[in-house]
């Protein structure tokens, strides 16, 4: 069975998307990306220095193997995010953009108003837009309506490793979405990724948990397995839990 999913007309086999920030070295980052089995990596444009070949993160990512998804991290309003996306397009890096608009510099929570505004404009300019959002089902539908390729609700604040704290809202988003749902941010352990996949999301994006692990490549492999396990369990159909304990083989002879 080919269990693939499609974003912006491109088919993906791996349901694990990986971020490239926070690693100890480029070598460690490359090893982790390989171990994860991912086909899509995000790159923060604020870290890309086109004027400095030695500090150029893109140099280490093989475009034949991975789709590079630039993100607008650091942008605090629609205007800045749009400007970054346009420059990326002009520099020939990508016409895809992971839209991040975070006016609050501490929790880095996404701004729904500015994100929707930027998404509308960028879709209109031909970008494939993947917006990072709070787990807000109505916003998710609004973004779908303006033509976004996915929605990327957060499980918990970015870099918090808290897991899926927005469970109920993500379930509504999954139920209502006609575009892929990718859980982004907050996933701190493979079990969190499994949980998200079991809930029926299409993919998970993981960065901090892999990058800051003592052994990033090993953690990336663990996440690959976590995502695959959760996905298979979802497809297999997870029996509903019962609210009371029940013996599986009655021994009393009574009919209950």
């Amino acid at each position: 069975m080919n269990d693939t999913f499609t974003i912006g007309g491109r088919e993906f086999y791996s349901r694990l998307l990986v971020g490239t920030g926070k690693f100890r070295s480029s070598e460690e980052m490359v090893a982790a990306i390989e171990a994860s089995g991912t086909e899509l990596v995000t790159v923060s444009l604020r870290r890309v220095d086109l004027d400095s070949p030695s500090d150029h993160i893109l140099k280490f990512i093989d475009p034949e193997k991975y789709l590079v998804l630039p993100n607008t991290s650091g942008a605090r309003n629609a205007e800045e995010a749009i400007r970054l996306a346009r420059l990326t397009k002009a520099a020939g890096i990508s016409t895809w953009v992971k839209l991040e608009v975070t006016p609050d510099p501490r929790y880095l929570l996404p701004d729904p108003v500015e994100t929707l505004k930027a998404a509308k404009i960028l879709v209109g300019e031909g970008f494939t837009v993947l917006p990072y959002i709070n787990a807000d089902p109505v916003l998710a539908k609004r973004l779908e309506d303006v033509g976004c390729a996915t929605v990327m609700p957060l499980g918990a604040p970015i870099g918090s490793n808290l897991g899926i704290k927005t469970r109920e809202n993500i379930l509504i988003i999954v139920e209502q979405a006609n575009i892929p749902v990718v859980v982004d941010a907050g996933i701190g352990a493979p079990s969190h990724a499994s949980e998200a996949m079991e809930m029926g999301v299409d993919a998970c994006l993981v960065n901090t948990a892999i990058a800051v692990a003592n052994n990033s490549a090993m953690m990336a492999r663990a996440f690959k397995k976590g995502v695959e396990a959760g996905r298979e369990a979802y497809l297999a159909g997870i029996p509903k839990p019962l609210t009371t304990a029940r013996s599986s083989s009655p021994t009393t002879g009574l009919p209950w």
């Binding site: 100890r24 444009l45 604020r46 870290r47 400095s52 500090d55 650091g74 420059l87």
Partner: peptide, 16 residues
């Protein structure tokens, strides 16, 4: 075991 970073900002970021 750390990486030194020169660029972690963008010229397109303006005052609030």
């Amino acid at each position: 075991g750390l990486e030194w970073v020169f660029k972690d900002w963008d010229i397109n970021f303006k005052p609030i």
